[in-house]
């Protein structure tokens, strides 16, 4: 089992302050209007711990909404390629909720698979994720339904779990986490290793959404063609909010943006909910209407991805539910689909 230490509550701020002075860039949750977002820290006072979760998942720090993957200049009839300058700096991202960290573990599988995407993986290896367990889930949260927990460690390098007055239980999960702990060991007491079970159970007890979705959806032709998709997708307006606030959605487009002298080839976030996503240049579209597009979203997360990678592509953060303009609810949809499938489940 992993080594664990304790971080006294009063030491947390000191540690963060020293991290801020270090050569690592410290990124932590801060207030922005009515939201809390991850931002580079200017002073430790800007950091807030008062959030259920951040407005956006942490994904954009590794896989930005839009980034150049290539630059080029025209030279006569030729072309000169330039590597886009990707600033690489060691970073610590503090305060990542277990659901969002688990999202990174999912993205790792995709971007690390053969044909490694170093735009993503280099940022990942240069960044140490300090997770922060969740004690008060929101009404829209459902991480336990998808096999995670408010104190799950997947994707974190270090995980802090608040243990009341005793401070934070520190779990070291990776070599990156070990490195950080080694560098700042004096902040962490090597006291007795306490179990976080009670914290986990208390947080889970506060979770109002607890269905059994973790087994995923078993696709059959009947289910694929079932009218339920048209039924649930009828109100879907086909925007990209659900995909863009999702910690695990990773579909992208590659486009050129150029002028008379050269240009950039950009990788932009994209969404299977957009009608153009699969439309061929000929006009043929394998997913001509919103029902087939929404079906793809749900099945990719609950059936296709698990078949390929052995895990659900949903971490239950609930952002797509709360941000949807028309209250499309993937938790409710997955339940409804499982009901159609005929698998026993509990609510």
């Amino acid at each position: 089992m992993m080594a664990c230490r304790m971080l006294r509550p009063e030491k947390l701020e000191e540690w963060l302050a020293e991290l801020l002075r270090s050569e690592r860039r410290l990124i932590a949750p801060q207030r922005q209007g009515e939201d809390v977002v991850f931002q580079p820290v200017q002073t430790v006072d800007d950091i807030t711990l008062d959030y259920i979760n951040t407005r956006w998942p942490v994904k954009a720090w590794f896989f930005p909404p839009s980034e150049p993957v290539l630059r080029y200049r025209y030279q006569g009839s030729g072309v000169e390629l330039e590597q886009p300058n990707m600033a690489l700096e060691p970073r610590v991202i503090f305060g990542v909720r277990p659901c969002d960290a688990a999202g990174l573990a999912i993205l790792d599988q995709v971007f690390n698979s053969d044909g490694e995407d170093e735009f993503y993986t280099r940022r990942r290896t240069m960044t140490t994720i300090v997770g922060l367990s969740c004690t008060h889930p929101a009404a829209s949260c459902f991480c336990t339904s998808v096999g995670l927990s408010p104190t799950a460690s997947a994707g974190s390098d270090l995980l802090l779990t608040p243990m009341g007055d005793a401070g934070y239980l520190v779990e070291t999960l990776t070599a990156r986490g070990e490195q950080l702990l080694w560098e700042y060991g004096h902040y962490f007491a090597a006291g007795e290793c306490r179990s976080k079970e009670a914290v986990t159970e208390a947080a889970e007890a506060r979770m109002s959404r607890q269905a059994a979705l973790a087994q995923g959806i078993e696709l059959s032709e009947r289910l694929f063609e079932h009218p339920i998709w048209a039924e649930v997708a009828r109100k879907c307006l086909g925007c990209g909010v659900c995909a863009y606030v999702c910690p695990t959605c990773h579909c992208f487009d590659i486009v050129d943006d150029s002028d008379a002298w050269g240009g950039v080839r950009c990788r932009n976030w994209d969404s299977c909910g957009f009608s153009l996503f699969t439309r061929h240049a000929s006009g043929h579209n394998p997913r001509p209407q919103q029902d087939s597009r929404y079906r793809q979203r749900v099945l990719h997360k609950f059936s296709y991805f698990p078949q390929r990678w052995g895990r659900l592509m949903c971490v239950g953060c609930g952002r797509c539910v709360t941000n949807c303009p028309v209250n499309m609810d993937i938790y409710a949809t997955a339940q409804a689909v499982l009901q159609v499938q005929g698998v026993k489940h509990e609510t």
């Binding site: 909404p65 839009s66 307006l237 086909g238 925007c239 990209g240 909010v241 995909a243 863009y244 932009n268 976030w269 969404s271 957009f274 303009p325 028309v326």
Partner: peptide
């Protein structure tokens, strides 16, 4: 802006 086009969709 992340160009989710929710403004357009609604």
């Amino acid at each position: 802006c992340i160009r989710c086009y929710a403004c357009r969709a609604v």
